[in-house]
Design a protein around this nucleic acid. Sequence first.
RNA 1: CGGGACGUAGCGCAGCCUGGUAGCGCACCAGUCUGGGGGACUGGUGGCCGCCGGUUCGAAUCCGGCCGUCCCGACCA
Length: 569
Amino acid sequence: MRMSQMFIPTLREDPADAEVASHRLLLRAGFIRRVTSGVYDFLPLGLRVLRRIETVVREEMNRAGAQEILMPMVQPAELWRQSGRWEKYGRELLRFVDRHDHESCLGPTHEEVVCDLVRRELRSYKQLPMNLYQIQAKFRDEVRPRFGLMRGREFIMKDAYSFHASDDDLAREYANMFETYMRIFRRLGLRFRAVEADTGSIGGRRSHEFHVLADSGEDVIAWCGACDYAANVEMAEARREAPSGAAAEVSETDTPGASAVEDVAAMLGVAPALLVKTLVYRARRAEGEDELVAVCVRGDDQAQEVKLARFLGADEVAMASDAEIESIGGVAGFVGPVGLTARVIADESLRGAEGLVAGANRVDAHLVGLSMARDVPTAEYADVRAAREGDACPRCGGGIRLARGIEVGHVFELGRQYAEPMGVVFQNDKGERTVATMGCYGIGISRLVAAVVEQCHDEAGIIWPMHLAPFHVTVVQLGKSEEVAARCHALCEALEEAGLDVLWDDRNERPGVKFRDAELLGIPLRVALGERGLAAGVAEVAVRGGEKLDVPLDEVAAFARAERERRLS
RNA sequence: CGGGACGUAGCGCAGCCUGGUAGCGCACCAGUCUGGGGGACUGGUGGCCGCCGGUUCGAAUCCGGCCGUCCCGACCA
């Protein structure tokens, strides 16, 4: 392709509103443009990368036995009512009414539609198992879209749904998909980690997330340095030592103005770990009234709200207001577990702890010498703290480490939670009417574009892995003599002959501009040819992010092909 | 939804405090020179100063409302 004729609007300067590397570089290099918050155009280069990722995903899904279909983006409310999610999904589901006053929504995920499709056709166990997938635009009306393609409202996703006659067969397919995902992310050349995960609003019994490791990631994952335990911190069961102070009588002491953990600890001369941090949460459930609960963790720990919500069986937990805190006998800033009229959920690490300091539920006062067993006898114990670096692994006791990750894949054992209400039934081998069991498996295709850039870039620009590069090689034409142009053209043809996708920079620009753009775009191989090289019979071949060397003109194509093969294997 | 910042040419920004002809760099167009790491010179093009209203003889500038964007938090397969 002639670069002079392609739509590649590069920017010399960083866009003011792009913070993270992938957002900044994808904009600068002319891969994407923003249409509105969380919604992007894919320009020719961006689309090429997207297609490459799709191809890898498609090949591996097909190989794993899944079949590609395409479902609609617009979905009728009645299907969502059948699954119960029309009420449950919340404002992230973009709803609208058509001209006939029918309620609809833009699909954020497709369990309902695929169940509707399958239930119409499924009669016999002999039709199972079945794994259907699609690669399609999703819409989720995110509260806060950000970081370009990383968290968009509209995004491209591969979603697969499998149907099974038995839980055993579902477990088999889950493992199959898990392995398939491992293969996909390996092929994409990413540093990633599979972790145990919360099932969130999709629901189901068991799930794993696949995270690309990157500091800009929005998730934190915990893993064990000694065994293969790994989990999202929303799940991670890491344990800590439970330090106790000296047993003592409980008494109240003045702590004027000291509310923050560090201030109280400093004022009383005790370690922050001996403080009991008490947080009041409002738990919301689809049915029933909101409940206020007090949550106790160590002063140097953080509460983990996803764990808490799971323990409470709540759809959502949020920090309570000062007024709500007072309604259960607490005082904002000085809340403690003693004397509250709400349930007290204490983290496991507080079980049996003594000699603690806690808020006295009175302004400017704390209790010292607190014993959980003696003074908070009604406390319920649960794992509600966030794992920290250095905690003990729940499997082997090894040291837990934390890292940030970008969630690019998620697999779920759904079980019958959609199939049951949606009526996905068949006759089993005994002629009995049976509800199918399901799995679902997602990959964020457009998010992967961003994730790859987060992992593969330097100051100068993107460094695409060979698999994903919009072009394998760019031929940089230096100078504008007919001779140079002709030889560059011939080089391009030879490279294409050798099976490479070639971007020919035939623009009337200075060499510096072309070199910088080649680096910004991140094309893995760069072949530069001008009068000087022509005279010597060589072209300069540079590997993006690597070395450069002169290669005789008639060997360039073979060299590039070998280089490509080497990087693809 | 809470907190913060911002909105002036395609991009990056100044001007606003202290009201009086809308600026700079890059990009773009024409020309000359140049040609292996964002070239030089000359001459140009391009603006609803986010929108609506108010104050004023006069508003990019002051005031009010709205819209949009970004960041932090809350939230999230």
